[in-house]
């Protein structure tokens, strides 16, 4: 290269400036392209994601019982609620809730398009720090102040609809994505 390439008397970018910028830009893109697999390898692998859905047979549960099924490494609670529990959930003033949701909003219609409020399906993971709330049959009154579930880790109370009522948890127990694939079987995930 001749000396005239090194600068431009008008202060305009020279060829050399262009080469510097082009080199730096290529190196940056290359570093990014190399970093991406290093970072992304930590995401859920294909087999983990593939194991993401299960079927649950609801006919096995009778009134007042709760089924716990492992889904994506977390328990799903299927609760066959008593009439008293349903009434208690309906009686709540929705406006007073931290995460306002009516009891009906927490259900998915079955194959005939009807909501069966007896069968409550939720992810049994406290929305605070991911502990499993307690509240299996017969323990309800002893554990939760609102007749539902109680998280022993940091003291969150959930009502009979799984809605947060007291304690540090910010949200209701989540309702997983699920559909009725027959009258008695649901597919979660």
């Amino acid at each position: 290269m001749s000396d005239t390439d090194k600068f431009d008397e008008n202060g305009e970018p020279t060829r050399r400036d262009f080469i510097y910028i082009a080199t730096a830009a290529t190196a940056a893109v290359g570093a990014g392209a190399f970093a991406w697999p290093l970072v992304t390898q930590m995401s859920a692998a294909a087999d983990t994601r593939a194991a993401g859905s299960i079927e649950i047979d609801l006919s096995k549960i009778s009134e007042g019982q709760q089924l716990k099924v492992l889904w994506r490494g977390k328990p799903v609670f299927v609760r066959f609620r008593t009439q008293a529990e349903i009434d208690a959930a309906d009686a709540v003033d929705v406006a007073s809730l931290r995460d306002p949701q009516t009891d009906d909003d927490r259900f998915v219609p079955n194959t005939s398009g009807v909501i069966d409020k007896r069968l409550l399906v939720m992810v049994g993971v406290c929305t605070h720090f991911g502990c499993i709330p307690v509240g299996e049959q017969g323990k309800i009154d002893a554990q939760g102040k609102f007749g539902g579930w109680y998280c022993p880790c940091h003291g969150s109370h959930y009502d009979t609809s799984g809605r947060i009522r007291q304690g540090p948890a910010p949200l209701n127990l989540p309702i997983p994505e699920y559909t009725y694939i027959s009258d008695t079987v649901i597919k979660v995930g």
């Binding site: 930590m42 692998a45 977390k74």
Partner: peptide
């Protein structure tokens, strides 16, 4: 959180990393 755990919850990928 899913990226850190390598799954939906704490599991084998989490333990290994």
């Amino acid at each position: 959180q899913q990226w850190l755990l390598g799954g939906y919850s704490i599991g084998n990928p989490t333990l290994q990393r």
